[in-house]
């Protein structure tokens, strides 16, 4: 197999007596969707936060495209192409759709300290932004303020912003949360398409989406990965069924 894009080894994080991440190792390979599932409180969000650099692990190493990124802060990791979406949609509310994506383009190219040229007439910002907006299926909404977008549209805006980072890997934290049936279907199609841009580490509760999308699944319980494997393997794994899928083995 090819070298992993993202490689996590021996990650540990505890808050006082609580071990939130217990010796976690996992890989994200090019072209795959790797789903991370687990019951509430299993430490999925804590793990994501350590990967993006929001909190520091106590032990362990994270490699991104072969480079150790343990010492980089969240902004630097984002600029390397580690694109993240949030559990609760997170956009700049008073900006238009176009401005939101322009911000991501500007953040990715690292040229934030430019003071005189109006951003809206800077085609090195607007053109890529429009392209990513179209790619995420939001054409025609460029001038709409993000705060008035529907929930589904805001999800698409987050994807457009992630695309603008010229991502090498996506970290999507429960993208299906709060989506209706139709919206979830649409988003599943978009995510399946996104895989060709960069591999996806997908944290998700919606099992239909996970089973439809994932190439591999890792199951996190009490901060520890109890199993990693294909959809079929995970479905058949007795320990997973007992501790997560809620069945008697």
């Amino acid at each position: 197999m090819a070298d992993p894009i993202l490689s996590i080894r021996g990650l540990k994080k505890s808050f006082g007596a609580l071990t939130a991440t217990d010796d976690v190792s996992l890989d994200l390979f090019p072209g795959e969707i790797h789903a991370l599932i687990g019951p509430n409180g299993a430490g999925k969000s804590t793990l994501i936060k350590q990967i993006v650099g929001e909190i520091r692990p106590n032990e362990g190493t994270i490699r991104f495209e072969g480079q150790v990124i343990d010492r980089l802060d969240a902004a630097a990791r984002a600029r390397l192409g580690l694109a993240r979406s949030f559990q609760v949609s997170s956009v700049i509310p008073d900006f238009t759709v176009l401005q939101n994506v322009m911000l991501a383009v500007a953040g990715a190219d690292g040229h934030v300290f430019r003071f005189h040229r109006p951003a809206l007439s800077d085609r090195t910002l607007t053109e890529p932004a429009r392209f990513h907006i179209a790619h995420a299926g939001l054409s025609g909404r460029e001038g709409t303020r993000a705060s008035v977008l529907s929930h589904g549209e805001r999800r698409k805006l987050e994807i457009a912003m992630a695309l603008a980072l010229r991502p090498r890997a996506f970290l999507l934290d429960e993208p299906m949360a709060g989506m209706g049936l139709e919206g979830a279907k649409q988003l599943t199609a978009i995510l399946s398409d996104l895989r060709s841009e960069a591999p996806i580490l997908l944290v998700e509760h919606d099992m239909d989406a996970v089973f439809a999308l994932a190439d591999r699944i890792s199951v996190l319980v009490y901060g520890r990965i109890i199993a990693t494997g294909s959809v079929a393997e995970i479905r058949a794994n007795p320990e997973v069924r007992r501790s997560y899928l809620g069945e008697e083995a």
Partner: peptide, 21 residues
Amino acid sequence: SRFGLALQATRQNEQRSTAVG
């Protein structure tokens, strides 16, 4: 300008600004 865009973004949503670098 670009700087103004970034400044206003950090006011409204710092976490999101960090996530785009």
